[in-house]
């Protein structure tokens, strides 16, 4: 028997309530997208002012870590989309499994990212510690940008992991044929993926093949 979410004030119709839930999430996601828009504006300014330095700094990035992480995150997004479809089709068990799968891939992403950070730490290109050694001032600027951008993204990804876990444990959410909670958490997870889709050419591909 599919469970229905109860109605809250001020709504008299379930459809209106679900529409408001969805719209609220989309507006929040829009504000998140604009936050990352600032990061991309910074990248654009760096690249327009120093086109050659930008590509040579990007050539030092770990291209295969970035590429693997893109594939991992795209697949994780697929699992989140499958969770939504499963909940809508009344397959609560599969919805839960897909959510855990998406979370597991999210953790794999963080593990690959942590390995990449660790390699950069060993190379001494992490800004801050006294042993940091950059080829040039621009290289340091690029690494500052890289850690702010990927750090902010990893923070969002961690928040998404918590949301995925909470939703996967929520029996009512898994049995909701409207997939309201699962749908909204999946939206957030897709945003994390979208941001990475644009960070990938910005950080990794700009200097590839040089």
């Amino acid at each position: 028997m599919p469970e229905q979410r109860e109605l809250h004030e001020p709504f008299h119709q379930r459809e209106r309530q679900e529409e408001a839930d969805r719209l609220g999430m989309l507006v929040f996601i829009g504000s998140e997208a604009m936050l990352f828009g600032g990061i991309f504006a910074a990248a654009l300014a760096l690249r327009l002012l120093h086109p050659h330095e930008f590509t040579s700094a990007s050539a030092h990035m770990k291209l295969w870590h970035g590429t693997a992480n893109t594939a991992v995150l795209l697949t994780s997004s697929l699992l989140a989309a499958i969770a939504v479809e499963a909940a809508r089709g009344g397959r609560a068990r599969w919805a839960g499994r897909a959510l855990w799968g998406a979370a597991a891939l999210g953790m794999l992403f963080l593990a690959i990212k942590a390995h990449e950070y660790w390699l950069e730490w060993r190379e001494g290109v992490v800004p801050g510690p006294p042993n940091a050694d950059f080829g040039s001032r621009f290289e340091q600027l690029f690494m500052n940008f890289y850690f702010v951008a990927t750090g902010l993204h990893a923070l969002h990804l961690t928040a998404g992991l918590v949301l995925l876990g909470i939703t996967a444990l929520n029996r009512r959410a898994r049995h909701d044929r409207g997939a309201v909670l699962i749908g909204n958490v999946a939206l957030y997870w897709h945003l994390v993926d979208l941001v990475w889709v644009f960070l990938y050419p910005t950080i990794y591909l700009a200097g590839a093949g040089r």
């Binding site: 719209l23 989309l26 507006v27 996601i29 829009g30 997208a33 604009m34 828009g37 504006a41 654009l44």
Partner: peptide
């Protein structure tokens, strides 16, 4: 309504990037 909410964010990002550029 939902497409407008999403499209508005994208439009503002386009404004931001084109003015910076």
């Amino acid at each position: 309504l939902m497409r407008l909410a999403t499209g508005a964010a994208l439009l503002w990002i386009v404004f931001l990037l084109s003015l910076v550029a």
